[in-house]
Design a protein around this nucleic acid. Structure first.
Lengths: 305, 305
DNA sequence: TCATAGCAATACCTTGAAGGTATCAAAAGA
DNA sequence: TCTTTTGATACCTTCAAGGTATTGCTATGA
């Protein structure tokens, strides 16, 4: 049984006349006769009763007609769904997220993606860079976001954007009265760094930044993430350094100040995905990331709550 | 898209290796490659990723695989259902019934049919012979049962069986003491005849029987059906003549006696169906009727309640 | 009653596409 | 580096789908 025959059958069942049905199918009448004969032979069932005025469906033919219509509709739907999936408009994307990027950049990307590809399911998974790489290898993740991602043969790391590093201080701290913080002044301040797992991390960047300036920072606490770090700043535990998008985190008594240095010390946010992943959904997502890359994300570094 | 291609696709999706898949399909590898290429071109979607070790499904391919399996299963089911319908094992039969035949013959036929063709829906419709013919013409009925059916060009009337005519009398009636009732003795008895609609009917047969014997029956009541007639006999209203299968109707004080005449007066039960109806369900049903035709239905004419 | 029109079926030819064999190109493994 | 394994390509053969011409049947109208 071929789809062609199903099509011929349904048209003949509609027209109930070989000549008209053949015309509608843009073939001549004899091939139609033969195809229907062949179907009847293959099924071992008479589908049409030949009458002097044309044909009519047998009971078996009526039953088969219903199913034939269903089969063709299902095939049509399958084709359309597959084409949607092939163009990235249907399917699923699993995104690994971690840290301060979730406070600003990633939500914007996700929102844009959802608007453009409403039929793609999006799942967010909170994991650190090590877990992300592992999950990517096991195809549990389509793409991961992180800072300072180790190179890997089977992964592509792509910069999403570069942010200034800001100093988070308590409003009561003397730094709060400065517009910019001179880096050397940090030397003796109690410094809170993060994250403490999955090194090297942003914490190492901060430390390296200090060392390049010629001093060793006074680290009073390593915490797991930016939220905990800023929470400690809020309670007067010390000061911290955060990526610019972390400044979206408004906690009582916390203000953010840029470092006094040119060029401004900065940290990259990157994404990572499988080198051999050609899936259209990933490509679509990457297109959005690339469109965002050079967009500025102005952040009011002087606001606080 | 052809079923052949769906089949090739599912096998390749299972084997994930062109060579093995082609072997399983009993074709060589190049045609398989070409058919898959053709599918991908037609859909405009890559279904497989070619890897050095073989192939793997893309996300779109996985989606299409699910649907392809469904399409093939639905087609398979359609084929089987159609073949069942074509052999009379699936579908529907509408049977018109009327009168005393419902008391014995028809239930046996229906029971036999249901046992042999459990997937055929049976619907019974109580209608008189006029209504049956009309319903047959409008295809609301597949077959009708009745007595004395008028000839018709587009209908076939076929005898189902021939029954003796019995006399139904009240146990207190003098006839109850006879083993057989001489027909002339009926002349002055109060006679109940039926049915009163859709003449000519069994009633006319009874009247004709009497006239042939040289007398005009003393009809005291015409009733609609055998049940009403026998009910009147039960209450002592008069005597009646009923087809043998009517003797299955046990009402208080009613006994049945054969007529004393050789050959025994009889009445046919017939069925009627459309001359051009070749439906396998009807043919199957007719086969059962014909098998029953020459079977005797022994009825104990002397029992009563 | 015969001629005609309209229908599906058949005979016969043409062509396109599916399948086969041989071979190539690329990559992995020994 | 050579061999093996994989999918892709080139080219040929064959079979079946489609076309034209025609037949056979039946209902209908003159």
């Amino acid at each position: 049984m071929e789809f062609r025959q199903l099509k011929y059958f349904t048209v003949l069942a509609e027209e109930l006349n070989y000549g008209r049905a053949a015309a509608k199918l843009h073939i001549s009448q004899p091939p139609l006769t033969r195809q229907i004969q062949q179907m009847e032979e293959e099924l071992g069932v008479q589908l049409f009763l030949r009458t002097p005025k044309g044909v009519e469906l047998t009971a078996a033919g009526q039953l088969f007609l219903e199913d034939a219509v269903n089969v063709m509709a299902l095939m049509q739907r399958a084709t359309e769904r597959t084409q949607l999936a092939g163009s990235g408009h249907l399917g699923r994307i699993d995104v690994g997220i971690f840290g301060s990027a979730m406070l600003n950049v990633i939500p914007r990307l996700l929102l844009t993606f959802r608007n453009l590809y409403p039929n793609v399911d999006m799942a967010l998974h909170n994991m650190n860079k090590t877990q992300q790489i592992e999950a990517l290898r096991e195809k549990r993740l389509t793409i991961g976001f992180n800072r300072i991602i180790p190179e890997s043969d089977d992964m592509v790391i792509e910069r999403v954007l570069t942010e200034r590093i800001l100093v988070a201080v308590n409003r009561s701290h003397k730094f709060a009265y400065l517009r910019e913080i001179p880096l050397p002044d940090i030397a003796n301040q109690p410094l809170i760094v993060f994250p403490k797992i999955a090194r090297p991390s942003f914490a190492d960047d901060v430390i390296a930044l200090c060392r390049a300036e010629g001093f060793h920072p006074n680290i009073v606490q390593e915490v797991e993430d930016v939220v905990t770090g800023v929470a400690l700043v809020s309670s007067g535990f010390g000061i911290s350094m955060v990526p610019e998008s972390g400044a979206n985190l408004k906690l009582p008594g916390v203000v953010y100040r840029p470092l006094k240095k040119t060029p401004s010390p900065s940290i990259d946010l990157s994404c990572v995905y499988r080198k051999n992943d050609q899936s259209p959904i990933l490509q679509a997502f990457l297109d959005i990331i690339r469109a965002y890359r050079n967009t500025s994300f102005p952040i009011d570094t002087h606001s606080s709550s």
